[in-house]
Design a protein around this nucleic acid. Structure first.
Lengths: 314, 314
DNA sequence: GAAGATTGAAACCTCAATCTTT
DNA sequence: AAAGATTGAGGTTTCAATCTTC
C-alpha cells in the first residue's frame, strides 16, 4: 500500500496539471469559437453519420439537458440538422449539414495541430508512453467507476429466483446446457437453502439501484461447499457466474477472495473447481490465484460436461 | 507527419475520455461537498503552509476572479484564514485553519482511495506507464503553451538596445565577461547594422504583448555571418542567447534551423561556432543538429575565452 | 499608473421539474 | 407510467470593469 501511495500522489498531481493544460475547463476556444463540448458533439455525430439525440449524453458523458442545449445551438448555427425518427415521433435523429462537415474538418485540423505541436518535442518512445499511459488510465478509471455501482454480499432468501435465472442464463451462453452440467442440479432452484450450511456459502453481486429502478438486482454470484464424495479437507468453488455487464471489472477476483476466505474459516484445506476450457476469463482468474490444472476430476460432482479441473491449497 | 497523425487522433480521443473519467467537469464531489478547484486550492495552501492570494491563479491556473471567489467561500466555511501582509496592506496571506487541515486530510484520503482503486487492477508496468505518460504529456503541453506566446522574426533597427542588453545580461550568467568573449565585441551595441549584410542575418525571439504590456519584448536572439579570417564557404553561428524564460521550449532549435536555412541561401557550405563547455543545453542542441566538436578554433574571432568549437556541413 | 483584490455579466454544466409522445 | 426532450434555478468559470493601496 505504501508502494502504491508513492505513485498515487504524483499521479494525482499530474492529472491536475494535465487537465488544466488540456484546457478542457476553458469555455471557448478562440480558434473555433466553440466550447470543447460543442466540438466533441460535432465529432461524435460526424463519426457515426447519424446519432439519436438520446445517445449524446452517453457519448459525451454530459447531462441530457446540456446535450439538448448543445444541439439547439449547433442547429441554430446551421451545422446540425435533426429529423424525427420514422418509428418514434419523440426521438430526434441528428446529422451534420454540409456546413457542419466543413466545420468539423476545421476543428479536427486545429486540434491535430495543437496536439502535434506538443508531441513534436518528444522522442518516439515518449510519444508511445504518453499514448499508452493515457489509454490505460482512462480504461482503469472507467472500470473503477463502473465497479463502484456494484456490491457483493451473502445471498439472501429473496435472491432465490434471481440467482436461478442468473445460472440458467449464463451457462448456456458458454454452451453448457443439458445433462452433465451444473445447470441441471436440483439446487439451482433454491441456492439459498443449498448453501446455508455451516461449511458452505454463496455470495451475490448486486447492482445499485438507479433513480426509480428496482434496487438490489442480482448480476452475478459464486460460492463454495464441501466437494461431493471428497475428503473432509476439500471444498469446491461452485456456480460462479456473471452477466456480461459486470465482467472485466475485477469483481470476479473480489468474489473469489471472499470464497477463499470463507473456505479457510470453514477449516477447509484445499479448494477444487470444475470449469470449461472455453471460459477463458474465468480460467485466467483461477490461474492468477494459484489454482493448478489437474488431469482428472476429483470427487463425484456428476458434471461430466466439464473439461477443465483445478485445485489449490488454502 | 502521417506517422504522427496516427498517434494524434487516438491521443485526442484518450484525452477526452480521461478528462471525463477524472470528473474534472463535475461541479461538486458528493463525498467532499467541494468542487475540484476548492480541493485543489486547499491542497496548494496546505503544501506551502502560507500562500499569497496573488499566487493562487498561477498555482490553480484559474482566473484571479475565480480564485477570489474560492477564497471567499473557503474563508466563510472556516477552513482558510487570511491576514494582510506586514509589508503590503494590499496583499492577503492565506493559511489553513485547524478545521482546514482536517478537511484537506479528508480530501486527500478520499482522492487517494479513488485513484488507488483504479490503479489496483493494473500491473506494475502499466502503473509505471500511466504515471510516466501523464507527466510527460503534461510537461509537453505546458512547453507548447508557453512556446506559443513567443515569435521569431528577423531583427529590426528598433531592437538594437534590447538585443545589446540581452547579450550583456546572458553572457555573464555563464561567466563569460571580460576580454576574450564576444561580449566585448564592438558590434554588440549595434547588432542591426552589423548583420544587415547580404551574407549575414540576425533573428530575435519576442514575447507577445499581454494586455497593457509593452509589445514585442526581445527575449532571445541568434544569427550568422562570415567567419572572420575564414574561407568563403564558412560562416559562423553567432551570439545565440536566450533569457531563462524561453529556455527549454524548443525555440533554440527553431532559431538554429532559421540560421542554417539562411546560411544555405547565402551559399555557405559550412557553419562553425564557438561556445563554452559549461553551456550544456546549447552544446546538446548543436550536437543534435549534426555539429561535430573540433580540437582547435577556426578563423580569428578573437574570442579566446571560448573553450569549445563545432562545425557542420550545410 | 500599477498591483492586489473584488464585483457584474455571460457562458457552461448539473439537478429537478415539466412537456410531449408512446 | 415511461421515454425523449426541454426549461428553470443554481454552481463554476472567464472577461471586463472597479475599488483600494502602493
Amino acid at each position: 500500500m505504501q508502494r502504491m501511495l508513492d505513485e498515487v500522489l504524483p499521479l494525482r498531481h499530474a492529472s491536475r496539471e494535465l487537465v488544466r493544460e488540456l484546457g478542457f475547463l476553458q469555455a471557448r476556444d478562440s480558434a473555433t469559437s466553440l466550447s470543447h463540448s460543442h466540438c466533441h458533439a460535432l465529432i461524435e455525430i460526424e463519426g457515426r453519420g447519424s446519432v439519436p439525440q438520446s445517445e449524446l449524453p452517453k457519448l459525451l458523458r454530459l447531462d441530457k439537458s446540456t446535450t439538448s442545449r448543445i444541439v439547439t445551438e449547433l442547429e441554430s448555427r446551421g451545422w446540425v440538422k435533426a429529423r424525427s425518427s420514422p418509428e418514434d415521433a419523440r426521438a430526434r435523429l441528428l446529422a451534420l449539414t454540409h456546413a457542419g462537415r466543413a466545420k468539423v474538418g476545421y476543428v479536427h485540423r486545429e486540434a491535430n495541430l495543437r496536439v502535434s505541436r506538443a508531441l513534436e518535442t518528444l522522442t518516439d518512445d515518449e510519444r508511445r508512453t504518453v499514448l499508452d499511459g493515457m489509454q490505460i488510465y482512462a480504461r482503469a478509471l472507467e472500470r473503477s467507476r463502473r465497479r463502484a455501482t456494484y456490491a457483493i454480499r451473502p445471498m439472501k432468501a429473496g435472491d432465490r429466483d434471481e440467482v436461478a435465472t442468473l445460472i440458467r442464463t449464463v451457462m448456456p451462453e458458454f454452451g453448457a446446457k443439458g445433462p452433465g452440467y451444473a445447470i441441471e442440479d436440483a439446487e439451482v432452484d433454491d441456492m439459498f437453502n443449498a448453501y446455508r450450511g455451516a461449511r458452505a456459502g454463496y455470495f451475490v453481486v448486486t447492482r445499485e439501484a438507479k433513480r426509480g429502478e428496482k434496487s438490489d438486482v442480482v448480476v452475478g454470484g459464486g460460492g463454495f461447499a464441501p466437494l461431493v464424495s471428497g475428503d473432509d479437507g476439500t471444498c469446491e468453488l461452485r456456480k460462479m457466474y456473471f452477466y456480461p455487464e459486470v465482467r472485466g471489472l475485477g469483481i470476479g477476483q473480489e468474489l473469489l477472495s471472499l470464497c477463499l476466505e470463507g473456505a479457510r474459516r470453514a477449516k477447509f484445506e484445499r479448494m477444487y473447481l470444475e470449469t470449461l476450457k472455453k471460459m477463458d476469463q474465468a480460467r485466467a482468474l483461477y490461474e492468477r490465484n494459484g489454482f493448478v490444472p489437474l488431469e482428472r476430476p476429483l470427487g463425484k460432482t456428476g458434471h461430466y460436461g466439464c473439461d477443465s479441473f483445478y485445485v489449490r491449497d488454502l
